Simulated scan of single mutants.
Amino acid sequence: MKKKLGICIPLSDEEYKKVEEYCDITYIETNDMSEEDLCDKLNGNEIIVTMGEYAGKTTIDKWADNGLEFLINARGTPTMVDWQALHDRGIPLGHCPGRNAVAVVEFTVGLMIMLLKKINQAMIGMHDGYYLGEEKDNVFDYIEKKDVNWNYDEGSPYMTMGFGGELYGRTVGIVGYGAIGRKVAKICKAFNMTVMAYDPYFPKEKMEEDGAIPSTVEDLLKNSDIVSIHLPVTEETRGSIDDEWFNMMKPSALFINTARAAVVKQEALVKALEEEKIAGAALDVFWEEPIPSNHPLLKMKNVITTPHMASLTYEVYNVWTNKLVIDHIIRYCEGKPMENIWKKLK
């Protein structure tokens, strides 16, 4: 007998057929749907798959009273689900760790390169009309020269921006050595970087197997040229990156955050940049999104800001996430041991 499945993420035709072998499927589009409506539309299913929709205690209790046995949240960290309510009802919570790992890793290393080589400053300068020559009637008409270069006059990019740098030979500090941090470390090793890593919950011997140096926070911050944050938001990590952290970093160091803004005290970061305690930052996440238009970080030339887009790839939402969700569903239906079950409680 097929299981009843309520799902909030779209599946391809091929994926639908694969799941349909095991389940009677109810697909719900949840755009701007209230929690109450979500609760009613998915009620009565043995398996429920959510993503960004909130499911609190009242919703979970109602679902549990009407046959829910397995809830899957199609995110790495299921922040929109009341974990404790599920635990109290004895219902496992499947999640999708690493679904956005490739996307965020590539984005993170891209930010390192952009910031270190000052690509953002050059792009903005060109776009805003700096560093440019006079207008020409025919831009395709030019005199060929052996050496084509911008000049070294006052106001040229070479004089105003100064030297960039190379990843090669530098030290990167990875704070949080989970699915994303570990992959960032691997790519940084390919650039011939020294990798230091801090994660009190990850085995040191496995870090060493990866070629990373297990480190204390203090050693990592004092020795890293680039500090890259890959922490979840927990009671332990919330606001943990503060004045003390930035005071330990090199004045030449760069700070990268593609994880969550809540782990950083924003006043401390702004102060560190204004007082030149660090050389620059690249941020894809903010304390309030959209970020207020008058936020001081937006006016700093040595800060790259992007609108929480590191994981915004086709592959994250249509390949990796669906693969993990379907694996959850099939394992449950076949009675196989469950993997990627959320174990943390609030």
Rank of each mutant, 00 (worst) to 15 (best):
Leu297Lys: 07
Ala281Val: 03
Leu298Trp: 03
Ala272Gly: 02
Thr306Pro: 15
Ile291Phe: 09
Thr313Asp: 15
Met309Ser: 13
Leu273Ile: 01
Pro307Leu: 14
Lys277Leu: 02
Pro307Phe: 13
His308Arg: 13
His308Asp: 15
Asp284Glu: 07
Ala281Gly: 03
Glu276Met: 06
Leu283Gly: 05
Glu275Thr: 15
Glu289Phe: 12
Thr306Arg: 15
Leu297Gly: 07
Lys277Val: 01
Pro296Trp: 03
Asp284Tyr: 05
Val285Pro: 03
Lys299Pro: 13
Leu273Phe: 00
Lys301Asn: 13
Met300Glu: 02
Asn294Ser: 10
Asp284Cys: 06
Glu289Leu: 11
Val285Met: 07
Gly280His: 00
Pro290Thr: 04
Glu276Ser: 12
Pro296Glu: 06
His308Val: 13
Leu269Glu: 01
Ala282Ile: 02
Glu289Ala: 10
Met309Asn: 09
Pro290His: 06
Pro296Ala: 06
Leu283Tyr: 06
Leu273Pro: 00
Ile291Ala: 12
Gly280Asp: 00
Thr306Leu: 14
His295Ile: 15
Glu288Ile: 14
Leu298Ser: 03
Asp284Lys: 06
Met309Lys: 12
Glu289Lys: 14
Ser293Cys: 11
Asn302Tyr: 04
Lys271Gly: 07
Thr306Lys: 15
Asp284Ser: 06
Val285Thr: 07
Glu276Asp: 10
Ile291Val: 11
Ile291Cys: 15
Thr313Asn: 09
Ile278His: 00
Asn294Cys: 08
Ala310Gln: 09
Leu269Met: 03
Phe286Asp: 01
Ala310Gly: 14
Ala310Leu: 10
Ser293Pro: 13
Ile278Arg: 00
Leu297Met: 07
Ile304Gly: 02
Leu283Met: 11
Pro290Trp: 04
His308Glu: 11
Ala310Asn: 07
Thr305Val: 14
Glu288Met: 08
Pro292Glu: 09
Ser293Trp: 09
Leu283Trp: 05
Leu312Trp: 12
Glu289Met: 11
Glu275Cys: 07
Ala282Asp: 02
Ala310Asp: 08
Leu312Gln: 08
Thr313Pro: 10
Ala310Tyr: 11
Thr305Tyr: 14
Trp287His: 09
Phe286Tyr: 07
Glu288Ala: 10
Glu275Met: 08
Pro296Cys: 05
Thr305Leu: 11
Thr306Trp: 15
Leu273Tyr: 00
Asn302Asp: 05
His308Asn: 14
Val285Asn: 03
Ser293Gln: 12
Leu297Ile: 11
Ile278Cys: 00
Asn294Gln: 13
Ala282Gly: 03
Leu283Arg: 05
Ala279Glu: 01
Lys299Asp: 13
Leu283Lys: 06
Thr306Tyr: 12
Pro307Ser: 12
Pro296Tyr: 04
Ala279Ile: 01
Trp287Ser: 08
Leu297Phe: 08
Lys271Val: 09
His308Tyr: 15
Asn302Leu: 04
His295Trp: 10
Glu275Ile: 07
Glu276Phe: 05
Lys277Ile: 02
Trp287Asn: 08
Leu273Ser: 00
Asn294Trp: 12
Phe286Met: 04
Leu298His: 04
Ala310Ile: 10
Thr313Gly: 12
Thr313Ile: 14
Thr313Ser: 13
Val303Trp: 06
Asn302Ser: 07
Asn294Val: 14
Lys299Trp: 12
Leu312Arg: 13
Glu289Pro: 14
Val303Lys: 05
Met309Glu: 13
Pro290Asp: 04
Ala281Phe: 02
His295Leu: 09
Glu289Trp: 12
Thr313Phe: 10
Val285Asp: 03
Lys301Asp: 10
Ala272Val: 02
